[in-house]
């Protein structure tokens, strides 16, 4: 049994799409609430911290403020400031949007923790292997380039060529370093190309693709479950209105589906921890 973060990145990526898309493009307060709660619980399980959660809740007052300044619709006028009415509907709409933006923010906080560059690259690789290899070589070159530029700067400094405070000479030497870095990169590109050719690159038009991650039964079930739950949410939507008056008609199936979807990672995480505890107690 693997934790949620250790599932196949493609399945995890799909899950994030499934959980984010239904909320992101709606103002459904129920979905917003569920998304926020699910993300918050999972965030705490992952990091044992609450900082990002508090930050994401800040979106609510900010959006309320913005909305009461911009929108004066709604039938329930609470009070009037400077001849402009502040309505309960407008506050609710702002609060709900803030909630959803906050929830999306929190899901992204979780996303960046789980989907490291390796995993993202894997996901893109399933879409386009060529682009993935290109990206991988590019990622290889970035630190190489900056390290060499730093070395050159240090060498020049130690013979006193780089030092003068004058901003013009500084810009000039920076330009020279950059131009020599271009030569250096081309020069090294030749070696890298040789090294690729020596290992048979370009003989076959279709390379195979190796990844650290396997696709197992568990990953398939994660994929299917999240697809089904997302479909349920979209097919049986709650109906709600903010203006002119607030109404909310819950759709039991849709709400249940999204609730399950939002708490799925936490559920996986918690079951896994309980199992681990059981295993330990048996030893």
């Amino acid at each position: 049994m693997r934790s949620f973060a250790e599932q196949n990145p493609a399945a995890v990526f799909f899950y994030f799409l499934a959980v984010l898309l239904p909320t992101m493009f709606s103002s459904n307060p129920v979905l917003g609430l569920l998304a926020m709660a699910g993300a918050a619980l999972f965030y705490v399980l992952l990091t044992r911290r609450v900082g990002a959660i508090l930050f994401s809740l800040l979106f609510i007052p900010v959006f309320i403020l913005i909305n009461i300044l911009l929108s004066h619709n709604g039938v329930t006028v609470l009070f009037i400031v400077n001849d402009t009415p502040v309505t309960a509907e407008s506050i609710a709409y702002g609060a709900c949007n803030g909630l959803i933006i906050g929830a999306v923010f929190l899901w992204f906080a979780v996303f960046t923790r789980i989907m490291t560059s390796d995993r993202l690259l894997y996901v893109f690789g399933t879409l386009s292997p060529k682009a993935a290899l290109l990206l991988s070589t590019a990622l290889r070159y970035v630190p190489l380039f900056s390290k060499q530029a730093e070395r050159i700067r240090n060498s020049q400094r130690a013979i006193g060529l780089y030092r003068d405070g004058n901003i013009l000479t500084r810009i000039r030497s920076e330009c020279r370093v950059f131009s020599v870095m271009i030569t250096w990169t081309l020069e090294n590109g030749i070696i890298t190309a040789d090294s690729m050719a020596a290992r048979g690159y370009g003989i076959l038009s279709r390379r195979t693709r190796f990844a650290l991650y396997r696709f197992r039964g568990e990953d398939l079930s994660l994929l299917l479950v999240s697809a089904a739950l997302a479909a349920g949410t979209l097919l049986w939507p709650d109906s709600y209105t903010y203006y002119p008056a607030m109404t909310l008609l819950l759709s039991p199936v849709g709400t249940l589906c999204y609730g399950l979807l939002a708490f799925l990672p936490s559920a996986v995480e918690i079951t896994q921890r309980i199992r681990w505890k059981c295993l330990l107690s048996k030893i």
């Binding site: 290992r199 690159y201 370009g202 003989i203 390379r207 195979t208 693709r209 190796f210």
Partner: peptide
């Protein structure tokens, strides 16, 4: 894995 990918070796 790079060289083996080039040779089309199965994953």
């Amino acid at each position: 894995a790079f060289g083996l990918e080039n040779l089309g070796v199965p994953s």
